[in-house]
Design a protein around this nucleic acid. Structure first.
Lengths: 194, 194
DNA sequence: GGTGTTTATTGAAATATTTCAATGTTTTTA
DNA sequence: TAAAAACATTGAAATATTTCAATAAACACC
């Protein structure tokens, strides 16, 4: 079932045969992740990449003041990884935590290298997925620059209505870059206007 | 000379022979870009990707109020493109303008597809470059969330000291997401403290 | 099921940032 | 090289946002 989901996801980007998919299947391991469990903790080295089959994750950093800042939320069919740590072999500035009881397909860094060698199409797959990630980060930067706090909040409600019910105001605030009290006030405004 | 620069850049990511590089050379055309000239205008389709040999570009979007927001600056050895438009075949929300008299090596979208077919290593090259782009966008998001305006300004001075002398305060402000008057005040503070 | 902990709401005061306007400086263009 | 345009600086007033504190509500854990 989980592998079927991954296969379906891959087929959105590249064409592969059942035969070829067996290579992928070999390297991806199913892993259960409890609610609140960390897949990666700030300061560790990120040695994996994971595909979310079920559940919800938050990728965030904690600054010197102890404040948390959310880089992104990952729901079903998203990938979680700290590329900076994985690629540049530095300790991670990010933590990755399950917000619900979740399930991922996880591939180790070294197995990913093997996969690239055995299935050159994997290069294309990850190139295309990387491009998608760039596009979404770029859109986020544009939104952060061009919208003010309340607009960003309303934009999030519109465009990520699937995420909203799965996260707290505090987590949302740490994504939008505002205080959670302000989120509370915006929510009140939004209800009033409806 | 320009091709040599591109080759050197490519060799940082993948190993290719002189023979293979000739394929790349075939598809990349040298183009002069005058100061203030646009390589892409918001509303057009982005049908190219370009490597900056010489000069400096600004990638930005103009919102409904006419305010400009800078997504990034591209100096020598950077790439310029609106991936969202290129990949998703939508009109671009971004403009790309030369801030100085510049020179780029430009490859057409369809030639890039040909290159992928003829040199599978190109997939790896663009995968690795995409990963680098993700890492830098991700770092930017973290900085925007965790630093306040003045810290972002000082951080830019530190980390992009090569860009600073080539752009105006207004352009810097549009990158940092603050008013240019505030940049002026921060600059005054920074000089005072020195 | 009760208790402790986290989350959400609200208002008031403090702070950060923008906007506006006026002036001087630098750069561009004819 | 002069005139026009864009850029930079500064201060004051307006606005947006944070911080703090107090209370209520929801959730987690024996």
């Amino acid at each position: 079932m989980e592998y079927h989901q991954l296969k379906k996801h891959i087929l959105k980007h590249i064409q592969i045969t059942d035969e070829e998919f067996k290579l992928y299947q070999k390297y991806f391991k199913i892993q259960q992740v409890d609610k609140r469990q960390f897949l990666l903790k700030q300061g560790e080295y990120c040695l994996f990449e994971a595909f979310v089959c079920k559940g919800c994750f938050r990728v965030f950093t904690t600054d010197e003041d102890g404040k948390e800042h959310t880089v992104y939320f990952a729901l079903e069919d998203w990938w979680i990884v700290d590329l900076d740590s994985l690629v540049n072999k530095v300790t991670s500035k990010l933590s990755i935590q399950a917000l619900e009881s979740s399930e991922v397909l996880i591939i180790h860094k070294s197995d990913k290298e093997k996969l690239y060698k055995e299935s050159p199409k994997a290069e294309q797959l990850f190139r295309k997925m990387s491009q998608k990630a760039i596009i979404s980060f770029q859109r986020r930067i544009v939104r952060n620059l061009s919208l003010k706090a309340e607009e960003r909040y309303l934009d999030f409600l519109d465009n990520y209505s699937n995420i909203v019910p799965r996260i707290t105001n505090i987590q949302l605030a740490s994504y939008l870059g505002i205080s959670h009290e302000l989120v509370s006030k915006f929510r009140k405004n939004a209800i009033k206007k409806k």
